[in-house]
Simulated assay, not measured.
Amino acid sequence: MKNPDEREIIKTFQKRFGKTGFLADDVEVIKIGSCKFIAKSDMLVQSTDVPPRMKIADIARKSMVACVSDFSCKGVKPQFATISLSIPRGFTQKMINDLADGFASASKEFGLKIVGGDTNQGKELVIEVSMFGAGNKKIPSRGSAKIGDIIATSGPFGYSSSGLKIILNKYKANPRFLKKCMGKVMRSTPRLQFGLQAAKYFSSSMDSSDGLSITLNDMSEQSKKRFVIFGFPTEYDIVEFAAKNKIDLKDLVFCGGEEYEMVFTVSPLYLHQIRKMARKLQVPLFEIGYVARGKDVVLMEKFKPKKIKRCGWIHLRS
């Protein structure tokens, strides 16, 4: 019997907790009295989540970005956070100061307050962030896409995966492209303001941090609809980088990860509003497909549908 991966472990716990009908989503919505309480927890582990060359302050920021991105795609503002740390022996006071500076800077950047947490000793740096917000408005789920909806992303895909290939596998790139990729790898910025304004028009939405293919497949499965993709959400310099280094463009775009972009579906009736918001906030909107009757995620190649299989980052498998 093979060892379970992240998805199988989650299913095991759900059964033990009596949540057999539970559907995974980006945030937890709990009704307390007349108010909806929104919560999200995410964990950063140095050996699996931190690329080489990342500064300690940026590691702290990244641990918060993961939760903020989940709030963003639901249109909910995170208000408070707790942080729990596993610190290895050998961490100097300067390193602790850099961690503190990263958390303080990120909390100011995203407009939230850190209210507590825990500190412990471990073999490597581990940061667990829990974020909280509140609100009574309708929150789009991963599984509420409607037939005829347009599928869109809040930005391009491929820069993070290209950057990791440059760092880890020594792929070649021109200085301008390298700078763009390093910015995405080291300091990704979730589209919080766009999400807060636009999510009321989304029929479904999901943060994409483990890979676009995983995101699209999760949304398709939960919506019980077919996602038809007719365009790549990417830029020409990604296409050029893939061609020069003989990399499959589909792998860069669909099987990467760490983008922290939102993927959403929206009725054609609301496209004008979404486009207007994106222009105002300088969000590079990509309309990549539509929702149809059926199942699976398919890419139209020469007018023929080809299934996009689940690929990306899955803990304990990837």
Rank of each mutant, 00 (worst) to 15 (best):
G135M: 01
K165S: 12
Y201L: 14
F202Q: 09
I166F: 11
Y159H: 13
L168V: 05
L216V: 08
N136C: 12
K113Y: 11
D210P: 02
D210W: 07
S205W: 02
D149P: 03
G143C: 05
R187H: 15
M206D: 14
K113C: 00
A145T: 10
K184C: 11
D210A: 15
K180A: 14
G155N: 01
T215M: 05
L178T: 11
L192V: 03
G102N: 04
D207Y: 06
N169L: 13
P156V: 05
L99V: 09
L196F: 09
S154R: 08
K172F: 08
K172R: 14
Y201T: 13
G116D: 02
I151D: 00
K172Q: 13
R176P: 00
A134I: 03
I139D: 00
A106M: 02
S105M: 11
V115H: 05
D118V: 03
S141L: 12
I127G: 04
R187A: 11
A104C: 10
S130M: 12
A173D: 06
P175G: 03
I150Y: 10
G195Y: 08
I150K: 10
F157M: 05
L196R: 09
M131C: 12
S141Q: 13
K200A: 15
K137I: 06
K179M: 07
S107V: 00
A152C: 11
S161H: 12
R187Y: 07
L112H: 10
G158R: 09
S144W: 05
G116W: 01
M206L: 15
D98M: 10
K146H: 08
G135Q: 00
G122A: 10
M131Y: 04
G148E: 08
S208M: 09
S161L: 04
G117Q: 04
S105D: 13
P190S: 10
G195D: 01
G183M: 02
P140T: 00
Y201E: 05
G148N: 06
S162H: 05
F194L: 10
P140I: 01
V185P: 02
S209W: 15
A198D: 05
L178G: 02
I151T: 00
K113Q: 13
F110I: 03
S161R: 15
I150Q: 06
N174T: 04
I127T: 05
G102M: 01
I114L: 08
G143H: 09
F157V: 01
Y201S: 14
M182F: 15
I147W: 08
G158K: 11
Q121V: 11
T153P: 03
S105W: 13
L178M: 11
G135K: 03
I147K: 10
A152I: 03
E109V: 02
F177T: 09
K184N: 12
C181W: 00
D149H: 06
K179Y: 09
I150V: 13
S144M: 03
I214R: 00
E128T: 14
C181S: 15
S141C: 09
T153L: 07
Y159F: 12
D98A: 14
S130C: 13
L112P: 02
A104L: 12
L125N: 04
E124K: 08
K165P: 03
G117N: 04
V115C: 07
K108S: 09
L212K: 10
S205D: 09
F103D: 00
Q197L: 07
R191Q: 14
S141T: 14
L164G: 06
F110D: 00
L168D: 13
A145E: 08
T215I: 06
N120R: 12
